[in-house]
């Protein structure tokens, strides 16, 4: 992405979305893996993956096929469609299946870590739409005058928070769980 930006001076939109198409569904898989002990099914995993792909595909259309100079109606239409996927994941993590499974597990460590991951979805993932709305035609661009160079700034901040933070939570859970289990060797 850095090389692409240096070579062309343009936002690496396609590369970003390729990256997210791999990493975001994987984050959803982490919810499934965490709650598997409480009876999470593969159906839940696929629902979360589909919701995340839905979110990304419409986000990509909104951004990559934005008409020259920007169109608010285009940005809003695909922004809203993308939001539906986000809302589903948010619901699942805080109120729906994932939250219920974590509660059912009766495992303090799982409850705590699912809650932390849910916070990432609520706050960390909410940074991406700020970047999205900075593109030409986006609300922050037209109403607040935030220029499109801020798109990458917000995406980088969000990536740093979500990928590193999310990974650290899963890592800490793995460490705490393996400490509880007797050593194989």
């Amino acid at each position: 992405m850095k090389d692409y930006y240096i070579a062309t001076g343009e936002n690496p939109t396609a590369l970003r979305y390729i990256d997210w198409t791999l990493t975001v569904p994987l984050m959803c898989v982490e919810f499934y893996l965490l709650t598997k002990v409480a009876g999470a099914t593969k159906g839940l995993m696929w629902k979360l993956i589909i919701a995340s792909v839905w979110m990304l595909v419409f986000g990509y259309i909104g951004e990559a096929f934005n008409p020259e100079g920007g169109s608010t109606s285009h940005s809003v239409t695909y922004g809203m469609l993308s939001t539906l996927g986000y809302i589903y994941i948010l619901y699942s993590a805080w109120i729906g299946e994932v939250a219920q499974l974590a509660k059912k597990s009766n495992n303090a460590s799982i409850i705590k870590n699912v809650r932390i991951l849910a916070w990432f979805v609520l706050v960390g993932w909410a940074i991406y739409p700020i970047g999205y709305m900075c593109m030409p035609g986006g609300w922050l661009n037209t109403s607040m005058g935030w220029d499109s160079t801020k798109v990458d700034l917000f995406y980088n901040i969000a990536d740093a928070i979500n990928k590193i933070g999310f990974g650290l939570v899963v890592y800490s859970l793995a460490i705490s769980q393996s400490k509880k289990q007797p050593s194989v060797s």
Partner: peptide, 23 residues
């Protein structure tokens, strides 16, 4: 999260996007 907070978030997200159309 209580369900009303979830509704509040969702409504705000949708209202914000609709209002940004400035119609």
């Amino acid at each position: 999260m209580q369900i009303n907070l979830f509704y509040y978030l969702v409504t705000n997200l949708l209202f914000l996007q609709l209002l940004s159309l400035e119609v």
